[in-house]
Amino acid sequence: MTLLYNLILLASIVFAVTFSLTYLLTLTLVKTLPKRGSVVEDYHKPERPKVAWPGGPAILSSIVIVEAILYLIYGDLKILSITLVTIIAGIIGLIDDRWRLKNGMIKPLLLILASLPILLLETYVPYPEFPIFGYVRLTMVYPLLVLLAVPIVSNATNMIDVLNGALSGFIVIATIPLVFALMLKGDYIMMVATLPLIASSIAFYFFHRYPSKIFPGDSGSLALGAMFCSIAIVGRVEIVAIVSILPAILNSFFILSSIKGFIEHRSIKTRPTILLPDGQLVASKDPSAPTTLVRMILADGPLSEREVVSNIFKLSAFSAFLAVITALVTWCV
């Protein structure tokens, strides 16, 4: 009973501290970035308002501060791995925000660096647990999969960051099954280490939701994606994570297969959606336009930006539900 009480207390403190830090830092950025001219146009509104950008440093610094404290308390290398992966991906995102990496291949290649802490600190176990038939030995292939996973997941979260609040809301929904799976496994330290991802995303969502006051930029989206992926690997909840993040994975898969290769999304000439004068979005009928999740949602007719984001959240919730079933089948059946 005391253990449970301590766990709930610790989880509440971690959540509250991360939430407060992200909220205050984002609020500061919302006020200071426009004064420094660090703004971008919101393309999905007729008046094209200028929005503060990037908000990634607020997300990154609050997560890193809390994870570093957790590492000092527990001394668990898995927490250090998560922290380092998030820092490296966030820095790569900051470089992209600052200097705009033109070549579509550079970012995924750089993100391989973010996978290295997991391999160097040996915080992975090459025996992923599958539903129904249990552990699978992947001693040779698993390190290679780790190298690929961080770039793939980070880019997938980066590609879903297209509308107001979509990324931050999506990360919150997709991370809940990870917390549930870690609870089922009884890995409470990892469960607590996952909470900063949810707390930071919720706090950021208050500013990122429609109409956005700030955009996360690549520093935010890559850091969040990389952290999600590192939790999945070191927490050994890989399959649950894959299912939970399916909308983002399918979105990037559909984009890459329709444009046939790695191209920086800013350099795609044909836009997948068209903004109508009344502010509604409609899917492009141009066959050369990339197939995105948003374009597929809009295929049945125009919707407001808010409605599209709401539909993305519904799809994410459905995936999260499937991920929870996957966790139950893996650890309870």
Binding site: L246, N311, S319, L322
Partner: peptide, 14 residues
């Protein structure tokens, strides 16, 4: 109803 087919795709992928 517009997201039901997309849910079907996600369900099938799962």
């Amino acid at each position: 109803s517009r997201i039901l087919p997309l849910m079907g795709i996600i369900g099938l992928a799962w």
